[in-house]
Each structure stands twice: as C-alpha cells, then as structure tokens.
Design a protein around this nucleic acid. Structure first.
Ligand SMILES: [Mn+2]
Ligand SMILES: [Mn+2]
Ligand SMILES: [Mn+2]
Ligand SMILES: [Mn+2]
Lengths: 139, 139
DNA sequence: ATTAAATTGTAGTCGAGGCTACAATTCTGT
DNA sequence: ACAGAATTGTAGCCTCGACTACAATTTAAT
C-alpha cells in the first residue's frame, strides 16, 4: 500500500464497483427474464438494457468465461449455479435499496432509476442500515 | 424514443451518470486541493485519485476542452467560473449524501467510501429526501 | 552554475463497452 | 418446401480510462 492509498481508497473502490457492475446487472436481468419468459435470448437482453445485440453477445461471452452463464451458438442464455447465486444476491440487494428509497419518500419512478446505479456502491454495512431504516419506517 | 425505452431507462440513466462522473470528481478535487494548497498540480490529482500522472494529464486536457478548467504547460490547474460552479454543486451533493449516511448509522469510513460512488446516481428528488431525513434524525 | 530531483508532456499499448454493416443460422407462415 | 422474418454471429470501428517507458521542462540543492 502506498503512502496515499488512504486518501485515494474511496475512488479506487468506486472504480472496482464499476468493474463488476455489468456482470451483476446481467445475471440479475437473465434471472428475471428467465423466470417470466422461460427463455432468455440475446435480443431480450438488448431490449432490457437498451444496447445493441452485438454488445450483449460479447458480454455474454465474457460471462461464460467467468463461469456465470452457459450458452451455445443460437441457443438461449442460462445461468450457471454460480451465476444464479450471484443473481440472487444482487436481486436482494437491489430490492433493499429500492424499498429503502420508497420508505424515505422517493417516488417509485425516481427510486427505480436511482436504485439501478446506487445498488453497486452500497457496502454490506450500509445495506444493513438501509434494512433497519426501512423496518423503522414501516412501524 | 424506441418502444422499450421505458424498460431500459434506468440503465441508460446509469450509463449517463457514469459518463459525467469523472468530470464531477475532478472539479471537486481541484477545488478542494486549491483551497488548502493554493496550487493544484497534476501530481496532486494523481495521488488524490490513485492513478498515474498520465491519466490525469489527459483528463485535464478534456476538462479544458469542456471549459471547466484552464491550464498552461507545466503550470498549475485552475477552475474556470463554470468549473467552480460545478464543483460547488458537486461538493454540496457529496456532503449531503455523506451526512445522510452518517445520520442513518453508517460508520464514517464506510460512509466516505460509499458516498464517493453513490453521489453520482442521486437525483434531485432523492437528494431532497436525504436532506429531510438527515434533518429529522438530528432533532 | 551545474547537477540532481521532481514535475509535466508524449508515444504507444491495452481492455471495456459502445456502435454499424453484413453474414449465417434458425424460426415461421403459406 | 421454401421464402421471408427474426435472431445470432462476425468484422471492424470508435471513445474512454487505465498503464509503461521515455523525453522535456522546471525546481531545488550543492
Ligand atoms: Mn440491478
Ligand atoms: Mn444496476
Ligand atoms: Mn465520486
Ligand atoms: Mn456508479
């Protein structure tokens, strides 16, 4: 650790959050689409994220390299066990952030938008505080 | 607007937040360093963010193109009026997010780290809710 | 005044994440 | 069965944000 690591730690952490963000959103999306549709296709993900199918195609390849999804040419995308576990964790965290924003009075539309970005920067400690606050508000 | 814009709006918004994030963090850092040191140098920013001076150098060039900073070769980096206004807005938003996290019980270290990423995804509506919550807790 | 150190600039590389254009494959309707 | 539509894959391009290695300039020490 360099002398200024303490100073730059928050920004280093933010950069790390961003490096894992897409994988998290992808497995979450694949889980959601798979549960309703039964089959998650490349085009579904392209529509979901608002990007081209080419971008999705390459990202799915990366997720496969990381062991999070399994797919074959021209076949649907499925989550591996590892991918499923990650998806569940992300879905729970996302839901906690979203419900917390609602609980403090943010309107549903803004809460949905903000939660999509915020979720990736919430540490376990902060997440726990969100849970407690949401509970408190519901009493 | 395409047919699925509504579905993909949160992710589009998150991508947009990320596209403006670095400029926001840079002007905020330049303002902070300038206020204590008097002179903000490339190396100061490199240490502050934990990146190489080359990365900073190019980013400062971009900020200059956007009219946020002014600098000359081998000279310190200064904020323009426009850059100063942006820095002030970002500093205020950052502080609100940080104080809010403290108010709901997050420890200072975690709050500092999480706030650095969260701040860029907080809409004006949500920010206002943060302010109200922080006030409420202080009573 | 010279040398050494610090700072800044430049050249060239890399991977991530976006795109368009086009080719290949699979699915669907008649 | 086969033509057309939808889907998926491939080639090639771009910008951003990071890096190393090295050159130029400025600052500091002797
Ligand atoms: Mn999500
Ligand atoms: Mn997200
Ligand atoms: Mn930040
Ligand atoms: Mn972010």
């Amino acid at each position: 650790m360099t002398e200024h690591a303490k100073q730059s730690l928050p920004h280093r952490r933010t950069r790390h959050d961003h490096s894992t963000e897409l994988a998290e959103d992808y497995v979450e999306a694949i889980a959601e689409i798979s549960s309703s549709d039964r089959n998650c296709r490349i085009v579904d993900l392209a529509k979901y994220f608002g990007v081209s199918h080419v971008t999705v195609n390459r990202m799915v390849g990366r997720l496969q390299n990381e062991g999070l999804v399994s797919t074959e040419p021209y076949k649907p995308v499925r989550l591996t066990a590892k991918g499923s576990r990650l998806a569940n964790r992300c879905r729970e965290r996302h839901e906690i952030v979203y419900q917390f924003l609602l609980a403090i009075g943010v309107d549903p539309q803004a809460a949905a938008i903000d939660a999509e970005g915020i979720e990736h920067h919430v540490s376990p400690e902060t997440l726990e505080c969100f849970v407690q606050q949401t509970k408190a508000k519901q009493c």
